[in-house]
Design a protein around this nucleic acid. Structure first.
Lengths: 250, 250
DNA sequence: TTGACGAATGAACACTCATTCAGTTTGGGC
DNA sequence: GCCCAAACTGAATGAGTGTTCATTCGTCAA
């Protein structure tokens, strides 16, 4: 009963990878197990240098078992990338809940950069390895990224609609933001020597906001800054407390 | 046998890759030949999927010969990455010559994005493959990137010194710019559907400048914009007209 | 207890590819 | 013309890998 039509509720992406095992719950569980191991290994040593045996060992299963839940090594990569990208889609909107468009945008950006920070090497994975996928699967991965961008785009559009931002090109602004977020992973080797994640987020947001704001927006932004300064560790400025420990100054 | 002082004139990077051939000019020529082929292949199909035989064939030499000019496949990758990164260092400053700091900054950014555009897949190479290098060589590649950043940093500092930019964090602004430039390659699959390189450059510059400018800077920027509009295809706004007519000098 | 069947195993297979090296070609000094 | 060292070649080597599949395991209904 349970394993009947419910499969169709699965993400289209995962569904295209076939499994020899019919029990849907088991498939989910095993794939999670495999993908968790795979992401760690792919991220650490790269897709090509990672052996199926490596993955099997780390997942605590046999090589043969992996081939019951995915048909090729590429499938494993595909499932891994999907898993990473979907975690973005999951986590970003969870924190957008303010009435103030500027604050909402901040929350979205702040969340994005922090998710990436939490799984930095996983974030690099898609840059490094998407090319190793066959075209149709690559398509899906890209689409997933576009979906994520839409979450940000909505927040930017709110700012424009509220008259706080000029009539900027939203799509391009979004890419500015996305690159800022991904940049934290891409250039972490250098950025970590030079700044903290809090400053990095604040700085990027500052440049963007001042660059895009109308006079009214600038006022709103300054109000936002003042508030934030008044409540330095408010609930919206989530986590990241200990993170600040590093303080190499320019 | 006769390792002369000539070798020491070579870039520190290249020098650490040993060659069995002593004739320095020949080494340069052959390596160029090999690296040209390698870059194309690495960029197109990835480092791991490219075989030494592929490289040899494309370069028009034998496999064995490659091993006389590099000791391992990793060496070939290293030489390739160096060659790409050094071309940035070469080309960026070539166009910085204006008295107006804003215009100089524009030229630098414009040049950077266009170099990357010209060799897009090569630009991706370093993101995808740096991880495949042994640590000491990776160091050198990273240092090369930092060097390039300094060229941009100098231009930003000029703007600050001239009172056109606020007292922003230069290092972070530079990374904003670098990500903007690299972003053109990283996200080209999407950006190309949505905009042109001219708009992309202008948009990024606009956001950055408005975000960083002092009131005086804003005026200077607007003056700059007006000038640019008056002379739509001036000498400083290089190329960008006919894409087909490329004349890469190397 | 038995039979049946899906799940799990891992040794074996077929193949790929970086690297080596025994041999051939080239060029220039006598 | 002869010689020799440097430059170059490419077949051979062997370590390593994705994938398969004959076999074993675990569970549960009869």
């Amino acid at each position: 009963m349970k394993k009947e039509g419910k499969t169709s509720r699965m993400r289209a992406g995962r569904a295209i990878v076939k499994s020899q095992v019919s029990d849907a719950a088991l498939v989910t569980k095993r794939r999670e197990q495999i993908v968790t191991a795979a992401i760690e290994l792919f991220a650490g040593q790269g897709y090509e240098r990672t052996t199926m045996l490596d993955i099997a060992r780390k997942a605590g299963v046999s090589v043969g078992l992996i081939y019951q839940y995915a048909q090729t090594k590429e499938d494993v990569l595909f499932l891994s990338l999907i898993s990473v990208l979907e975690s973005y889609k999951q986590e970003i909107p969870r924190r957008v809940e303010s009435a103030d468009p500027v604050e909402s945008l901040w929350s979205a950006i702040d969340a994005y950069v922090r998710i990436i920070d939490r799984r930095r090497s996983a974030a690099l994975l898609s840059y490094r390895s998407t090319k190793s996928l066959p075209r149709p699967q690559r398509r899906i991965v890209m689409q997933l990224e576009v979906d994520t961008n839409d979450l940000i785009a909505a927040r930017v559009r709110d700012c424009v609609a509220a008259g706080l931002f000029r009539d900027i090109d939203v799509e391009l602004a979004v890419y500015q933001i996305v690159l800022h977020a991904h940049g934290w992973a891409l250039k972490h080797w250098r950025l970590a020597q030079v700044t903290t994640i809090e400053k990095y987020i604040a700085n990027g947001f500052d440049l963007l906001t001042r660059g895009a704001a109308t006079p009214a927006g600038l006022l709103a932004y300054q109000r936002f800054l003042a508030e934030r300064r008044a409540i330095p560790a408010s609930t919206t400025l989530v986590g990241g407390r200990k993170r600040g420990a590093r303080k190499i100054r320019k």
